[in-house]
Amino acid sequence: MQQQVILGKELLQVTLRRLCQEILENHGDFSNSVLIGLQPRGIYLAKRIQQILKEDLGKDIPLGELDITFHRDDFRRRGTPLRANATNVPFLVEGKKVVLVDDVLFTGRSVRAALDAMTAFGRPEKVELLALIDRCYTRELPIEADYVGKEINSMISQKVNVQWEGVDGGEEDKVWLVLSENG
């Protein structure tokens, strides 16, 4: 398996800090803002963001976990069925500014499903999207991120992996591109 590291541990930390500074610019003291991480992988990134914001603001920012399995547009159309994950949004988004958080922005379909899923929790004042990795030129829907960790050029057949320390046996924070499965 041929791999290419996109963000190593140190650089990833710098990127996360920069993303948090950008969010703070727009959301101030977060008095009317919430974070929502997308299941299954976006929640780990959202927790990191929450952690860093806590250091800066001295308080916990409300964080929800949103599962989009039941809102996907490829039900009965995809080969391998997906297992649903837990949704845990312990607040209403009515009138709130929401930052959706996902690790990789690819076709944009997950984000579309997330916007749909979120309507069950009210009408937000504003929704923004944060993506750690933005895979350029692979979008299938007109969706763009407001905060981007790093843009990369990749082929549809390639895969971006994000690993977090302590999650599923991951040893350190790292993002890499799988160039080909057998090469």
Binding site: D67, T69, F70, H71, F75, R83, A84, N85, A86, T87, N88, L92, D116, A117, T119, A120, F121, G122
Partner: peptide
């Protein structure tokens, strides 16, 4: 698998908007 999926649906039916568009 049915129970695990039902756990998620139980959360759905206790929301203010109790509906998902799956089917």
């Amino acid at each position: 698998l049915i129970f695990e999926t039902a756990d998620h649906f139980k959360e759905v039916i206790n929301r203010p908007i109790k509906k998902v568009p799956s089917l």
